[in-house]
């Protein structure tokens, strides 16, 4: 039984890693096409993408949109979770439902809805518009994570602080936020990941300044190239390093 398990594990890992291995290997291709046979080792495609102005601008745009939109989503989500966790309001179930609702809707529809609205209001597509869309998709996530992390011992710590005369702002900043730090970190990290990688909303809501996935998309239209492999590998290696570093950090703190 155990041997069968390990065989399945090996096959599954093979399947999961196959496209990534092919991606990375052929980013080092010393030829014009990222397919076998492997013609030799070269870093020239990495040089090419690192000196590509459009690509590097898109990378910066993506980082900015991801950072700002995740920050906004986290603050809104945290405050809402804090408000809904402490007292029972009339209609609080409904409010939770409304806050979670965007999670069950395709990004395409969220993007299309915003595009419709912005068109009618005469708002031009931009990175700001994309950021607004990314807050919509990440807010439910941040809210749900914060809400789930709020326990009873936290409520009593908050009450103690209030009884000792702390204003609500101080309670939020000095008691609730530090106690929830792991959940806040996780929510922010997940939001950044989703925003960073989001394609369809950014595709619909940007025009001249684009994000990285949209820029990669337009690279794809000019056909297969090891340059696409190179940018893909770079993004993968960078995010994999971050994930592994966070995991190591998490382990040590435990």
């Amino acid at each position: 039984m155990r041997r069968l398990g390990y065989l399945y594990l090996a096959l599954a890992y093979g399947f999961i890693f196959l496209p990534v291995v092919v991606l990375v290997v052929f980013s080092l291709q010393d030829g014009r096409l990222p397919v076998p046979p492997f013609q030799g080792f070269s870093l020239r495609w990495y040089g090419k993408i690192l000196s590509d102005r459009g690509l590097m601008t898109a990378l910066g745009n993506s980082a900015a949109v991801a950072g700002v939109s995740s920050g906004v989503a986290l603050v809104l989500g945290f405050l809402a979770a804090h408000g809904l966790a402490r007292v029972r309001l009339p209609g609080s179930v409904l409010m939770r439902g409304v806050l979670i609702a965007p999670m069950t809707v395709s990004y395409l529809i969220i993007g299309l809805g915003l595009l419709t609205l912005f068109n009618q209001m005469g708002v031009k597509p931009s990175l700001w518009a994309t950021g607004i869309g990314h807050v919509v998709i990440n807010l439910p996530l941040c809210f749900a994570i914060c809400f789930a992390a709020m326990g009873d011992h936290q409520k009593s710590a908050e009450r103690a602080a209030r009884d000792l005369g702390a204003s609500e702002m101080r309670v939020l900043w000095h008691v609730s936020a530090p106690m929830l730090a792991p959940a806040l970190g996780a929510a922010f990290f997940l939001s950044v990941t989703f925003s960073w990688d989001e394609f369809i909303i950014a595709f619909l809501l940007t025009r001249f300044d684009v994000t990285l996935p949209v820029e990669i998309w337009s690279m794809l239209r000019s056909g297969l190239s090891p340059a696409t492999n190179a940018i893909g590998s770079l993004v993968f290696l960078a995010s994999a390093l971050v994930v592994i570093a966070l995991e190591a950090l998490f382990r040590r703190s435990k």
């Binding site: 999961i16 890693f17 496209p19 990534v20 092919v22 991606l23 990941t193 990688d197 394609f199 990285l212 996935p213 990669i216 998309w217 794809l220 696409t228 492999n229 940018i231 893909g232 993004v235 993968f236 995010s239 994999a240 994930v243």
Partner: peptide, 12 residues
């Protein structure tokens, strides 16, 4: 591999 770009994963 979840952390590769979504567009790039389809491409690979």
């Amino acid at each position: 591999p979840f952390w590769t770009s979504y567009v790039v994963r389809s491409y690979s």
